[in-house]
Design a protein around this nucleic acid. Structure first.
Lengths: 184, 184
DNA sequence: CACCTATAGTTGCATTTGACAACTAATTGA
DNA sequence: TCAATTAGTTGTCAAATGCAACTATAGGTG
């Protein structure tokens, strides 16, 4: 269980274990809180949580196919199609035929969609800023990196590929595959 | 938008904004991934995700009332009751009358429940350890604290009180109300 | 003590979310 | 030209969840 520090296992920090427990506890709280969403079913403004994620996907990743959005959302394409229906019904997105492939649709955000998302994004950004404020810069910089690793580990375990970060890549140095995640 | 550094706003780190965006992107991925749970509906072994959280609550917080568990899970008490039904059906928990209050039940974990949870806990702990490994100790130590702040902020916004951390408390110093979260 | 009110849980019911499977339409390749 | 593949949509069903109604117990107050 607790590997002894030897020449090639360079002294495992004894607090690692405790840190892991703390992290899991906090994560558990976060996850439970996040999954409780039906109450104020509306994410923030006029859309459900899924719709909000979908809107973000459509806007951030430019016009994209339904299947790609489904992958991004970790949802079945049928579910995704219906989520998009909702977005379209509210006038935040639209389906257009892909000129290069008659089977496919390209999802575009509308002006209203962009406006709505900008508002939501601002809100969440402000909230996040408030959370980060006053934190040691190194710590807050390390956080996304850590979350990405966590997501990757979970995705791996669940047998899906997370689009945030490629197949895999050891990040011993500064910001390796994380870059590809943040950049988009 | 970008507040100018003055005497009393001690030079806002210009990277704060970028850090916040990175964080939100990673969080988004995490949340989407986590909400995709119906697929392998079974958390890991023999229970659903909700049941897993409930089991953890029952075991970690000793015998507790249904209402308290519901609060912990951010679920309606009716839903919680049914989640517990599932746990009981599988023999992982049991309802007992509260000797001090005939209306209440006290939820107890069974031996099987303890055993199952130990297994799940080990798995997740190992996963978390792997994620944390190789990270700078300060960074990984700061992480739970940060998540707690995030949870608190979200809980606040949603108008619920998160049990992980009390009403609120500025943590300028080392580890303030975070302690109460980790300690439990 | 009797009764009214508040509290703890359970059950009925409707809604939402989601997956899977069947279907349609379009592309690709032999 | 036609079979096989691929992109999306729609039908159907199951699970999760909240709200409201209900039961049973506690706690006060006249």
């Amino acid at each position: 269980m607790s590997p002894e520090p030897t020449a090639d296992t360079p002294a495992v920090d004894p607090s690692l274990d405790a840190d892991a427990r703390s992290l899991r506890r906090a994560m558990g709280d976060l996850i439970r809180l996040v999954q409780f969403r039906d109450r104020d079913r509306i994410c923030c403004h006029d859309v459900s949580v899924s719709q909000c994620h979908a809107l973000e996907g459509v806007l951030r990743r430019g016009p994209l196919r339904l299947g790609d959005l489904a992958a991004h959302l970790y949802l079945d394409k049928s579910t995704t199609s219906r989520v998009v229906d909702g977005l379209i019904a509210k006038g935040y997105a639209e389906r257009r035929r892909d000129p290069d492939d008659g089977r496919a649709v390209l999802l575009h955000g509308t002006e209203a969609g962009r406006a709505l998302f900008a508002k939501i994004d601002d809100d969440l950004h402000a909230e996040t800023m408030a959370v980060l404020e006053g934190l040691a810069p190194e710590a807050r910089r390390a956080l996304p990196q850590l979350l990405v690793r966590l997501v990757r580990a979970k995705a791996n375990r669940m047998g899906v590929s997370c689009d945030c970060c490629g197949p895999d890549e050891a990040d011993g140095a500064g910001n390796p595959s994380q870059a590809s995640c943040i950049a988009t």
